[in-house]
Simulated assay, not measured.
Amino acid sequence: MAVADSVRVSEIFFSLQGESSRVGLPTVFVRLTGCPLRCGYCDSAYAFYGGETMSFDLVLERVAAYGAQYVCVTGGEPLAQRNCLPLLQKLCDTGYSVSLETSGAMPIDPVDPRVSRIVDIKTPGSGEVDKNHWPNLDLLKSGDELKFVLTSRADYEWARDLIQTRHLAQRCPVLLSPVWQGIDPADLAAWVLEDRLPVRMQVQLHKILWGEKPGV
C-alpha cells in the first residue's frame, strides 16, 4: 500500500452529528488517529494511538456502506496526518457534504475549499491555549464554524472578549460549548443572553442520547 494513499484510522462509524450547525444530521464519522494536544477535557484520548492503516479506497468503501450524505473527518487531530488533505478532497470528489473538526493548532489554509472547517479555539481552561494557530482566524469563511469549549466563567469571558474584539461572528458562525458535566448549560445560556452575544450555544447531542463513549 502506498503511503500517499492511506491514513491511520481510529474508527469509522455512523451516528447523529452532535455538534455544529449540522447537529442532528445522520453522519458518517471518520476518526483519524493521533493528536499533538492534550486538552484536559478530551473525550477521544483513545484515538491518540493505535488504529488501523487504511487505503483511501477502503475508507471510501466503509463510508459508502452507510449510505449517508454527510461525512465528518475528526480525531484526534486529523490535520496532524498530511494525508488527511487528499482524503478530504476524495470525499468531496465523491459527492459527500464534508466537514472537518480540527483543534485549531494546525494551519487550515491547505484544506479543500469545499470542506466546512469546524475550528476549535483552545481556551485557557483547556491547558492548550498556547497551541492555537492564530492565523487561522483570518482564513475563516462563511461556510466554516468556530468553536470554543468552555470550562468556566473565566473561559467564557476570555472567549467573549476575543469574539467581540476580533469581530469573529461576522466571519462565520461561532459556537460555544460547555464542557460535558462541567459548566451548567443553563448558566452558559444565561451569560450568552446577558451579553447579547451573537453566537450559537450548543450542547453535545450524542452524549445526551448515548453518554460519553466511542462510536457515537
Rank of each mutant, 00 (worst) to 15 (best):
F29C: 07
S20N: 03
I183A: 03
S10N: 15
T74E: 14
A80D: 02
T102S: 15
N136E: 00
T53G: 06
D43W: 13
D130K: 02
L137M: 13
F148A: 05
T123W: 01
V98A: 07
Q164R: 14
I163P: 00
C42F: 14
E212W: 13
L32T: 04
E128G: 00
S116P: 01
P198S: 11
H133F: 15
G215C: 08
A105P: 01
P198G: 08
Y49F: 09
L188H: 08
H133Q: 01
W134N: 00
L150E: 10
A64L: 03
G95K: 15
T33H: 06
R160S: 03
A154H: 13
C72Q: 07
V73M: 15
G51M: 09
L87C: 09
T74N: 10
S103H: 02
D112S: 11
Y70A: 03
S116R: 14
N132M: 01
I12D: 11
L88I: 09
W158I: 01
V73Y: 14
S97T: 15
L139E: 05
Y41L: 11
E145I: 05
L79K: 11
H206T: 05
V129S: 14
D195K: 14
P173A: 04
L100Q: 14
Y156S: 01
L175A: 03
R196A: 15
W191Y: 14
D120L: 03
R62M: 10
V30G: 12
L88A: 07
R8K: 13
P214S: 04
P36V: 08
D112K: 11
L176P: 00
H167Y: 10
L168D: 01
S15I: 05
E11I: 02
M1D: 07
M1S: 13
I108Q: 02
G40V: 15
V129Q: 11
M1G: 08
D195Y: 06
L176K: 10
P124K: 03
T94H: 12
L146I: 03
V28T: 15
I12K: 11
K122V: 08
L79R: 05
L140G: 00
E19H: 04
V111N: 02
S10G: 12
V28N: 08
E101A: 12
N132E: 00
A189K: 12
D5A: 08
W134D: 00
R82M: 09
D43I: 10
P185W: 10
S55D: 07
R31M: 09
A64K: 08
A64P: 03
R82V: 13
Q17A: 08
G215H: 08
V3H: 07
P86M: 05
L100F: 12
D112I: 07
S152I: 07
L139S: 04
F148R: 00
C72S: 15
P110E: 12
D112M: 06
R117E: 00
R171E: 00
Q17V: 01
L188R: 08
P173H: 07
C84R: 05
G182F: 04
E52Q: 13
